[in-house]
Amino acid sequence: MGDHYRVDLEALEKAASGVNGTLDEISVQKVSDIPHSESQVGHEALASTLSDFLDRWQRGVDNLAKDGQEIATRLTASVNAYRAVEEHTHKQFHGILHGVKDPAVKQR
């Protein structure tokens, strides 16, 4: 019975913050900002191919950003859930130690 687990809420919060920071950074500059016009690359077919590639790349970045936002949201929700349980447990123990009955439990 010596197996215990611990959740580092601060680490979860930092992870969510880090993901959000990265998302903020990638939202500042789009892949489409990379020069890719015919006048910039010097060749019509190359410009067209590069444009198609950048469009696909941007869709990939957008999908990763969406997934990253979901990760950050779930990390934050986990922190909130752990804190709520911790607070409830603390109140329960406080009530037991001080003889306060749990109002959520129906008395007979």
Rank of each mutant, 00 (worst) to 15 (best):
D8L: 04
F53K: 13
L9A: 14
N80M: 06
Q92K: 15
D55N: 12
N20I: 07
L50Q: 10
K14I: 03
H36D: 03
S32R: 13
V61A: 03
F53C: 01
N20E: 06
A81C: 01
Y5N: 15
S37N: 07
K66S: 12
D55M: 11
W57I: 08
R74L: 03
L64V: 09
D67V: 10
S37W: 08
Q40E: 12
K66R: 15
V61S: 02
S78Y: 04
V31R: 12
Q58R: 04
V31W: 00
S27Y: 03
E70S: 14
K14F: 08
S17F: 09
S48P: 09
A81I: 03
V41P: 01
S78D: 04
R59N: 11
T73N: 15
Q92E: 14
A47F: 10
H88P: 07
L54M: 09
R6S: 09
S27W: 02
G18I: 09
A47I: 11
Q29K: 13
G60P: 07
T76I: 04
T49L: 12
N20M: 07
L46R: 00
S27A: 11
Q58D: 12
V41K: 03
S78P: 05
S48R: 13
K14R: 06
L75P: 01
K91L: 07
R74M: 05
W57K: 12
T76W: 10
E25W: 02
D67N: 09
E13S: 06
G18K: 02
K14W: 08
A16P: 00
E38K: 14
H43C: 14
A16N: 02
R83C: 05
L12S: 04
L64M: 13
A16F: 06
S78R: 04
E86P: 00
A81Y: 05
D8A: 12
V31T: 09
A11H: 01
F53N: 14
G21H: 08
A81R: 08
V85T: 05
G42S: 04
L46Q: 01
Q69A: 09
G21N: 06
I26W: 07
T73W: 05
I34R: 06
R83H: 05
S48D: 11
I34A: 15
N80L: 01
Q92S: 10
A11E: 06
A77S: 14
L75N: 02
I71Q: 05
D52T: 13
E70F: 05
L64D: 11
L12R: 01
E25S: 12
E87G: 06
I96V: 10
R56G: 07
V41I: 13
S32P: 08
I71V: 11
R56M: 04
L75W: 08
F93Y: 15
I71H: 00
E70K: 15
